[in-house]
Nucleic acid binder design. Structure first.
Length: 410
RNA sequence: CGGGCCGUAGUGUAGCGGUAGCACGAGUCCUUCGGGAGGAUUUAGCCCGAGUUCGAAUCUCGGCGGCCCGACCA
């Protein structure tokens, strides 16, 4: 992709009013554009990061044996009434021209449960796991911090259906492992934290929290064992005794919730009469679980956690491009050759071919955008017949040949 | 939804009752070219409404919008 033709521009100034560093960087570097409070456009750079995020999530969901579907966002009132959720505060309500009421989905149990009812009848149909990656709407009383809390956001939601609680339990922990793997691939360090199940279950649920001072949740965890609980439910105190291992190693930190997993049990299936016939022909209620990952929020969390004073630093799996190729004075011929070579090798490259843009500006932009690898071609590098290669997080660059560059960045 | 701060060219700001200015951006031309270049020239603005006043970007009230704190957060 040639940058001269790319729909993205960095801003010379910091966006005014924004305090959250992820919002400041994502806006200034041209990843997103604010349309109104809590509502954003994903510009090409931001969209690429979002798609990378979704790609990783898809791979891990498919590995769990889950199947992808896409449900509607516009949901007729009757579905919300069936679960008694037409009047929840976060539901956006709309009317069509004939006066029909709809709610914009903030979650999809209402759609999913009646859907699978049409498909599940026998023990042979279970277990079943379906997921989607889709835009959710929530009438947040207070959007904040760029992509971290928005009114419209992209979320992966997975729902599983089981013959009994044992099977749910087993699957639940498999999903937990998949989640850990996903966040690890993003380079995000997360804590799996016990939290309240809200209206859904008396049992604890688990949240995946990225620990950072700017997170809006508070997490109490033990530095000696794996105990971790959300402030909402914990009895642990900072510096106090760990209820699990007994040591005085409780620490308090803020976190960004990037995922959660729920054992719904029979909460929705019972009221919806979602059931199956077991091997002896007896009717049983289906046991369910639901599992979410906020993929647009992950983009925000990555920006929040991974940057320096010059700009963003994308981990390899999230970077909008693999290589940012910077052409400086006298580097045209060399740059074109690298560009072609990388493209032929299937490596995504953003080629800064802009003319009449100063070297300083190009390099500053590259730091701001934060693509994992930066390659510079100039008269200086051309004379040595090498390319200057630098990882965004590193101070030092190395001189490599055209062949070597492929080994480094692939 | 309570509280606070704030709305001036595309962006960032100055003006604090009396001719709306600066920088960046964008356009044109010349010179530059390894860390947001220099000169010339052009372009573009007071969130909306009411009130006070001879006169309002400026004061008052209302609305709308943004950010932050809190409440809320399937």
């Amino acid at each position: 992709m040639k940058q001269s033709r790319f729909f993205a521009k960095t801003l010379k100034e910091w966006p005014k009013d924004e305090e959250s560093s992820s919002a400041r960087f994502l806006l200034r570097a041209g990843f997103i554009d604010k349309n109104s409070s809590g509502v954003y456009t994903f510009l090409p750079l931001g969209l690429r990061v979002l798609e990378k995020t979704n790609k990783v999530i898809r791979e891990e969901m498919n590995a769990l044996g889950a199947t992808e579907i896409l449900m509607p966002a516009l949901i007729s009132k009757k579905y919300w009434q069936a679960t008694d959720r037409w009047d929840v505060d976060v539901l956006y309500k709309v009317k069509d021209s004939s006066g029909q009421d709809y709610g914009l989905a903030f979650t999809h149990e209402e759609v999913l449960t009646p859907l699978v009812k049409k498909f599940i009848s026998s023990w042979r149909d279970l277990p079943l796991a379906l997921y989607q990656i889709q835009t959710k709407f929530r009438d947040e009383p207070r959007a904040r911090a760029g992509l971290l809390r928005t009114k419209e956001f992209v979320m992966k939601d997975l729902y599983s259906f089981h013959a009994d609680f044992d099977d749910l339990e087993n699957y639940y922990w498999r999903v937990a492992d998949a989640y850990k793997k996903i966040f690890k691939r993003f380079g995000l360090t997360t804590k799996m934290v016990e939290a309240s199940g809200g209206d859904f279950t008396d049992e604890y649920t688990h949240e995946f929290q990225v620990l950072t001072p700017s997170g809006e949740d508070e997490v109490f965890y033990c530095t000696s064992c794996d105990f971790a609980q959300n402030k909402e439910i914990t009895k642990a105190k900072e510096g106090g005794k760990c209820p699990k291992c007994g040591k005085n190693k409780i620490k308090k930190e803020n976190g960004i919730e990037v995922g959660n997993i729920f054992k719904l049990g029979m909460r929705f299936s019972e009221t919806a009469d979602l059931s199956y016939k077991d091997k002896s022909g007896r009717k049983n209620i289906v046991v369910t679980g639901s599992y979410g990952i906020g993929s647009s929020r992950i983009v925000g969390a990555l920006a929040e956690v991974s940057h320096d004073d010059k700009g963003l630093i994308w981990p390899a799996e999230s970077s909008p491009f693999k290589v940012h190729l910077i052409e400086l004075e006298g580097g045209r011929e060399q740059a074109l050759k690298i560009y072609e070579t990388l493209q032929d090798a299937g490596i995504e490259v953003l080629y800064d071919d802009r003319e009449e843009v100063s070297a300083g500006e190009k390099l500053t932009d590259a730091d701001l955008i934060g693509i994992t690898w930066r390659a510079v071609a100039s008269s200086r590098t051309a004379s040595q017949n090498k390319i200057e290669l630098k990882a965004r997080g590193d101070d030092k660059s190395i001189m490599v040949s055209l062949k070597e560059i492929l080994n480094h960045v692939k």
